[in-house]
Design a protein around this nucleic acid. Structure first.
Length: 422
RNA sequence: GGAGGACUCGCAUAGCGGCCGAGUGCACCGGUCUUGAAAACCGGCAAGGGAAACCUUCGUGGGUUCAAAUCCCACGUCCUCCGCCA
């Protein structure tokens, strides 16, 4: 949710942002109109209410005939107040509904365009030349089978498509990745958190996942709860309706949780293997900071993501995601894409978004300093999403015989230097 | 799943249908006093909207009433007991 005051004063900036995203521009004027109607109704209600308060007080003090007369008056006024209140509530609801549809203001530095219009910021590492190594790389499904690490067939049998078992060294690799991730997060000032993955509508709504992304969210209707697609949801909502003291900022959480995604509308996309699955575990970074520090914090999150990939010894590139491909909360987003040899392509493994005050305003999270209480900024970034990282590690570090070398950083956590064939 | 109790400004509490947006204690902030601190004393201290008057908020939502923190209903959360259970 953007600041309605800002919108009133700078409608052109908001229109330009909507246009840049390829989203509804007229809605800006609809919001302004609805806001005016709302404020008129509010003023009317408040005037009547004030009258009623005064009259009510005199009723209490009056006696006899005077009281009877006042009561008749008051009754009539009460009906008017009720009507005005109903109208006010309706118009407020309408104005809010419209405002909630509006996306966050684009960062002026974000590239404009659609999915293909991203800007590559840098390449780190060089894709390995398998021809020079003298063998054809196996994909992660085949390697996973050879190592007894991934079982997609039984996953499908038990849980349907896009499901899998991590077994043996696959399971151990997850633990190692998580432990390494948490250890580095601790070094960078994050508090470790294991959040709930089953959340109420307020948390889901507040983080903006019931908008365009709603079709990818699992809902448990009977109990009116949702399964989160990322721990960003419970981490952001953790401080819902709270006022945080300025001296505690930036407040950084590293959440480890399972993530659930329906992957609706992705038929035929990444059907092989574990690149796109319904359930996976992830360590997510989440920051609450002052709005003026958000850009810097965003760069830090990106740096920590890069550090992780570097430690895994995987070649990658960093892209500045274009406006049309941003989530509605994000003003700017950087993705890290790891080199996947058998796809001959860079594929997204982590992503970090600056949501400025947009998410916090919906969740009613503020901070307080000497000047008063203000909306806080929120940012999120993936430290490690397990399946995609496993894909990258297996494919990039494989040997001709199907064994896989363990990156040095993970060796202490795994107690092995190589994954052997089973 | 069943039975009972509770939910008020950071914490603990007071609160008769109108004099309650709400008292008190603790904590916190500022000041006086003190060499400094403590104590004592004085003042401030929930949030949102509004230039202000003022309006809204006593778990949430509805209802009764001229008027609701206070009465009624539903839901939520917490606590106690019983049942089931990793």
């Amino acid at each position: 949710m953007i600041d309605i005051k800002f919108l009133r004063e700078n409608p052109d900036v908001v229109r330009a942002s909507q246009k840049g995203r390829g989203e509804n521009v007229e809605i800006v004027d609809q919001i302004i109109a609805a806001d005016e109607r709302k404020r008129a109704a509010l003023t009317e209600f408040e005037t009547l209410r004030q009258e009623q308060n005064v009259l009510s007080k005199s009723v209490g003090a009056a006696k006899g005939d005077e009281k009877t007369a006042l009561l008749a008056n008051a009754k009539e006024l009460a009906d008017k107040v009720k009507a005005a209140d109903t109208k006010r509530a309706e118009l407020e609801e309408e104005a809010k509904k419209l405002l909630l549809q509006l996306s966050n203001l684009l960062d002026t530095e974000a590239p404009i365009g659609g999915e293909e219009d991203f800007v590559t910021l840098e390449h780190v590492g060089t894709p390995r030349d398998f021809a020079k190594d003298g063998f054809e790389p196996r994909d992660h499904v085949e390697l996973g089978k050879l190592l007894g690490a991934i079982d997609t067939e039984r996953g499908a049998k038990v849980a349907g498509s896009r499901s899998y078992y991590l077994t043996g060294v696959g399971a151990l690799l997850e633990f190692a990745l998580v432990n390494y991730a948490i250890q580095s997060a601790l070094k960078n000032g994050f508090s470790p958190v294991i959040p709930p993955v089953l959340v109420n509508p307020a948390a889901m709504e507040g983080t903006g996942f019931l908008g365009q992304a709603a079709e990818n969210v699992y809902r448990i209707e009977k109990d009116d709860v949702y399964l989160v697609g990322t721990s960003e949801v419970p981490l952001a909502a953790m401080h819902m309706d709270e006022i945080l003291p300025a001296e505690k900022l930036p407040l950084r959480y590293a959440g480890y949780s399972s993530c659930f995604r329906r992957e609706a509308g992705t038929y035929g996309k990444d059907t092989r293997g574990i690149i796109r699955v319904h359930q996976f575990d992830k360590v997510e970074m989440f920051s609450f900071c002052k709005p003026e520090e958000a850009k810097e914090e965003h760069k830090r999150l990106l740096q920590w993501e890069k550090d992780f990939l570097t430690a895994m010894e995987i070649p990658f590139r960093v892209i500045d995601v274009a406006s049309g491909d941003l989530g509605s909360s994000a003003v700017r987003k950087f993705d890290i894409e790891a080199w996947i040899p058998t796809q001959d392509a860079y594929r997204e493994v982590t992503s970090t978004s600056n949501c400025t005050e947009f998410q916090a305003r919906r969740l009613n999270i503020r901070y307080k300093d000497a000047d008063g209480t203000k909306a806080i900024a929120t940012l999120n970034g993936t430290l490690v999403a397990i399946p995609r990282m496993i894909v990258a590690i297996l494919e990039n570090h494989q040997n001709a015989d199907g064994t896989v070398n363990v990156p040095a950083a993970l060796q202490p956590f795994l107690g092995m230097k190589k994954f052997e064939l089973v």
